[in-house]
Nucleic acid binder design. Structure first.
Length: 264
DNA sequence: CTCGATCCCTGGACGC
DNA sequence: TGCGTCCAGGGATCGA
């Protein structure tokens, strides 16, 4: 993409959106700032999803590539924007125009922006389990396994409860605590469970605030009951069996005897 | 519409 | 010490 300029970097759910300006016609791109003001509006975007282990950052071009480097963009200041991803769960796509719009339309509301009424309507309007709804990017965008579990613990809602089964009050509480958690996690630059590092190469701090996720066998911060784990919506789900009463017939996994120490 | 199963992929944890 | 096995996780896909 020679000549393209990154005009803005935005977040869209779990995606990073690199807005790319049109190729420069002249040598000097900076001097045209006063003239062509709106070329970016028709330009495309690079959509980047980091998956689990993706990482994107700029390095001096002379620096040797890290292992699992899959994509490099040479920048005009001599650095290289590099994408590394050990597990290759991440994805990258360049889209523009209606294709870009269409792609972005597939996703649900941003929980940090959506109104309380709309959040409640979404949650109560589906029969799926609340955990599945929180993870479904088409219902709400941006929430992953950690923040789903953390918000459900705070709201005292069992992950296997059906969305449509929640009371309005419960759904409102979930909206509030989810926003609080996401805002705080963003300030603390995320949760570094194993190897996550932010774009500056620094680990996040929010894992210190986890109340449920990864705490199987440890005591609930509210009531002291041992946190349990179950597979809900195909994902490990951590919850307090006392604070978050299960729907009838729900089976959780037996506590591991001495099993592997799961990360706190 | 919702579910579970399967696949992708690697590093780390675990068992022997 | 070293090797094999299992597993986590976001998401696409498919059949039920």
């Amino acid at each position: 993409m020679p000549g393209r300029r990154i005009s803005a970097v935005e977040r869209y759910g779990k995606f990073m959106l690199l807005r790319l300006g049109q190729p420069d016609r002249t040598e000097s791109s900076l001097s045209s700032a006063g003239g062509a003001a709106n070329v970016d509006s028709v330009a495309g975007s690079l959509l980047v999803h980091l998956g689990m282990t993706g990482h994107i950052a700029a390095f001096p071009a002379a620096k040797p590539h890290e292992k699992h480097t899959h994509v490099c963009f040479l920048l005009d200041d001599g650095r290289e924007l590099r994408y590394t991803d050990a597990r290759r769960f991440g994805r990258m796509a360049y889209l523009e125009g209606t294709a870009l719009e269409k792609e972005l339309q597939e996703f649900g509301a941003d929980p940090l922006v959506v109104s309380r009424e709309e959040f409640v309507a979404q949650v109560r309007g589906h029969r799926a389990r609340i955990k599945a709804l929180l993870l479904d990017q088409g219902v709400l965008r941006g929430v992953g396994n950690i923040y789903a579990d953390e918000s459900l613990w705070r709201a005292r809602i069992h992950p296997a409860r059906l969305g449509a089964q929640l009371t309005t009050k419960q759904a409102r509480t979930l909206h509030r605590v989810l926003r609080d958690i996401l805002e705080k996690a963003i300030v603390l630059r995320g949760s570094s469970i194993s190897d996550f590092l932010d774009a500056e190469g620094e680990p996040g701090e929010y894992q210190r605030h986890h109340r449920a996720y990864g705490r199987e066998g440890k005591r609930c911060y509210r009531c002291g009951t041992l946190i349990r784990r179950a597979i809900v919506a195909g994902r490990s789900s951590y919850f307090c069996p006392r604070c978050q009463p299960a729907p009838r017939g729900f089976a959780m996994l037996p506590l591991p005897r001495r099993g592997k120490a799961r990360k706190a």
